[in-house]
C-alpha cells in the first residue's frame, strides 16, 4: 500500500494541502485581472458561433458583462438591447487547482513555464464555457423573441445544449487534468519509478 515511504506521492499530497488554499484565495482576489484574457477568447468564440450578435464584452469585478445587438421589447412598448451579466468563475475554478497541482509537483523544472502553460492552456476551455452559456441563454432560455433573432434551428439548439453541458460539467476537469498530465509526465514517471524500487 501507499505509505510515508512513498516520498514523491506523499510529498505531492502534503504540498497540495498548502498550495490549494493559497492558490484559491489568490485566484479569487485576482479574478478581475485573470478574467480579461478569458473575455478576449470568449468574444472570439461568440463571434465565431453567433456572428454580429455581440456588441461588447467587458469584465466588471468578478462578473462578465455582455452587451448584445439582440432587441428586446419592454412591456410599455419601448425597444432596447439585451444586456447580460454572467459569472465566468464557474468555468475558471480549474486555474487555482492546476496552479496548486503544478506547484505541488515540484518548484524546480521550468516552474515559470509550467505555470504559464497552465494559464494559457486553460483559456480556450474557459472561454468555451462562457461562449456556450451565452448561446444557451440567448438561444434556449430567454424566450422566442430572442431565440428567433439568434436564428438557430433545432439541430443547432441541440448542439448548444450539448456544448453547454460539456463546457460546464466536463471541460473544467478534463482540461486541467489533461494539461497537468501532459506537462508532468516526468512527475508521473518518478512516482512509478519509486514504486518499482
Amino acid at each position: 500500500m501507499i505509505s510515508f515511504k512513498d516520498k514523491i506521492l506523499m510529498g505531492f499530497i502534503l504540498r497540495l494541502l498548502i498550495f490549494l488554499p493559497v492558490s484559491f484565495v489568490l485566484w479569487y482576489y485576482l479574478a478581475g485581472y485573470l478574467l480579461i484574457p478569458v473575455g478576449w477568447f470568449s468574444s472570439a468564440g461568440i463571434e465565431m458561433l453567433a456572428s454580429g450578435k455581440l456588441e461588447s464584452l467587458s469584465v466588471s469585478g468578478k462578473m462578465m458583462v455582455l452587451e448584445t445587438n439582440l432587441q428586446v421589447q419592454t412591456p410599455d412598448g419601448r425597444t432596447g438591447f439585451l444586456l447580460l451579466e454572467m459569472n465566468p468563475l464557474v468555468y475558471c475554478w480549474n486555474l487555482p487547482l492546476l496552479t496548486a497541482m503544478t506547484l505541488s509537483a515540484g518548484l524546480g523544472r521550468l516552474l515559470g513555464l509550467r505555470l504559464a502553460a497552465a494559464y494559457v492552456g486553460l483559456l480556450p476551455f474557459q472561454a468555451w464555457g462562457v461562449t456556450f452559456e451565452f448561446l444557451k441563454l440567448t438561444a434556449l432560455q430567454y424566450g422566442p423573441e430572442i431565440s428567433q433573432q439568434m436564428g438557430h434551428g433545432s439541430l443547432g439548439r441541440e448542439f448548444i445544449a450539448l456544448g453547454y453541458q460539456f463546457g460546464f460539467l466536463m471541460l473544467p476537469v478534463i482540461s486541467a487534468s489533461g494539461l497537468w498530465i501532459v506537462t508532468h509526465r516526468w512527475f508521473i514517471r518518478d512516482v512509478l519509478s519509486e514504486g518499482g524500487k
Binding site: 500500500m1 501507499i2 512513498d6 506521492l9 505531492f12 499530497i13 497540495l16 490549494l20 484559491f24 475554478w93 480549474n94 487555482p96 487547482l97 497541482m101 473544467p172 476537469v173 486541467a176 487534468s177 497537468w180 508521473i188 512516482v191 512509478l192 519509486e194 514504486g195
Partner: peptide, 19 residues
C-alpha cells in the same frame, strides 16, 4: 469541484503506483 477532481487524480496516481 476542485476537491472531487483532486480525489480522482490522486486515486489514479495511487492506482498506477500500485500496479
Amino acid at each position: 469541484q476542485a476537491l472531487i477532481m483532486l480525489d480522482a487524480l490522486i486515486f489514479w496516481l495511487v492506482w498506477i503506483r500500485l500496479l
